[in-house]
Design a protein around this nucleic acid. Sequence first.
DNA 1: TTGAAAGCGGTACCAT
DNA 2: ATGGTACCGCTTTCAA
Lengths: 335, 335
Amino acid sequence: MERPKVQDVARRAGVGTSTVSRVLNNHPNISALARERVMTAISELNYSPNLSARSLRSGQTSAVSVLLPMTGTAFYTELLEGAQHIFDNADLDTALFPLVSGIRIKRYQRPDALLYRADGLLIASLSPDRIYQNQPVPFGKPIILVDAHHPEYHSVYFDNLAAGQLAAQHALASGRPIALIDVAETAGVFESPVFLERRGGILQTLSQHGVTPSHSVQVPISFEDGRQAARALQDAGLPERSFVIALCDELGLGAMRHFAESGWTPGQSLHIMGFDGSLEARKTGLTTIEQPVRQMGAVAAKLLLEALEGHLNTIQARRFEPTLIELSSTQFGRT
Amino acid sequence: MERPKVQDVARRAGVGTSTVSRVLNNHPNISALARERVMTAISELNYSPNLSARSLRSGQTSAVSVLLPMTGTAFYTELLEGAQHIFDNADLDTALFPLVSGIRIKRYQRPDALLYRADGLLIASLSPDRIYQNQPVPFGKPIILVDAHHPEYHSVYFDNLAAGQLAAQHALASGRPIALIDVAETAGVFESPVFLERRGGILQTLSQHGVTPSHSVQVPISFEDGRQAARALQDAGLPERSFVIALCDELGLGAMRHFAESGWTPGQSLHIMGFDGSLEARKTGLTTIEQPVRQMGAVAAKLLLEALEGHLNTIQARRFEPTLIELSSTQFGRT
DNA sequence: TTGAAAGCGGTACCAT
DNA sequence: ATGGTACCGCTTTCAA
């Protein structure tokens, strides 16, 4: 038979189509016998429901969409692990829509994009204002922003300003001159406020103590760029007994490598720290600021579930506070 | 108005619903006037079609699904960039379905998973046999395997055996003792034959020349593990004038770092190479085996398009041959 | 070139 | 507890 339908199942089970539907959707008030016969017919015919028909009639899709940048970093893997688990338990299927190039944006601006064939939407690390050019998201169902913050949307995010402040305080406590390895972002759709906020927190705290960074470089994010940034700092006359704040772990790790290679053993002469709480940083002993990424993903997913159930009447914001993980790169040889 | 439908558009434009549908789907034989009036009505009402209704009726989804592991590496970003571009031009929406944890597998085994609400399926780096436990994929439409190979499916993949052979030949040409930094894989769903094949190519070529690796270690894939592997090799008595083959760039880069730190300057005393042709390897000067990832993604996508049009009557296999990129880590101080 | 109407495969209402 | 049936919104004959 050509792809069986409910009618075929109903006929074979000797019941009505509504009974089949009830069994499929776990409705109450079904006799054990009827359920049994329907189940048998289903497996005999190898039946599976047509999702399009189901959503057309029910108005639901049993799916959530996740819009996210694809960076090839572990960040989104972790975030998704946290979220997927929650969606799985709620019997929601999850589809990912990566923003790999600018061209895709045009597609996502159309309200009939596949992205919006969902009951809810999670937007990760992206600014709706930027993607939709300050127009509302063409999706009339619940939306949660994660790793991003916007007054008009439910948001789950890190307190990057506090993270910056925490880093600055730790640096100040060392009594050393403070240098910055900053992130050079290409402006555009993918631009995220994360680094802006971290930087702001750092500079704000420093200036409150009358301190200005002794040296500063801006580079793209990669291990190798971190290395080159460290070299550039040295070339610019960075004193060996400095405290270097790198705006992310990857840059910090690259810089740490260069300093180590040039004999400025991190933690013993030079001090250095990063941001992200990455596994690499922990393994390598780079002091960092932890961000509970997986947990953030889970909280965002839970918030979306609540929104789907209509329990969210006011805009929600869940902010995660940072934790300092002090490792060997800033522990020894304190002044 | 509550989400307008074709009827609303038709009424406003003073035409029949079929005319609206024809305009929406770019059918020929539509008068310029009718098209104009329909377009106006659509934008006035801010109409957008219901995807579920459309696919229910047409039997098509205008979507392709991509099943892939989420590793946080640049590999899949590149692969997708290659594929998305092709799908975009064919007006196909693309949804990603990551296999983040084993639990997900259960979901994907059901034929009514969202994954299968598509016209075609791309499976990346995963073995159908392993995911579906030797049962056929529950999807009666075109499937393309990419970065994987299977006699029963269309496949687009790298010749990893040749890559291994190429590496071994390069190592043999150095006349040095050859050591291996191998990948320790956790068996299971995610296990891919890539490393098995690379390893096989290496060992096969070596043994053809009567050579056996002087030293060998197995470690998980990470920069830091590469570093530790290098140290382990030294502890095991690796001679400084060796040729080290790392089974991937990330391990090679980590090892290179350790060797550099311990004074065995890569390329000058010790020789080392990796696999993948990663950007990092190129920047750092690590000799590597190039794999045109983006191109492979594009070819896989094109193959899927052909399959969708019914042009593929026999199982297709597209194999990409590897290229050696010789950089400084194996160039100088040749014997 | 166009409109009326059938029908895609389910779900949910309304009887019983 | 169960079956009949209208109907979700669209595409596609078919006849005009």
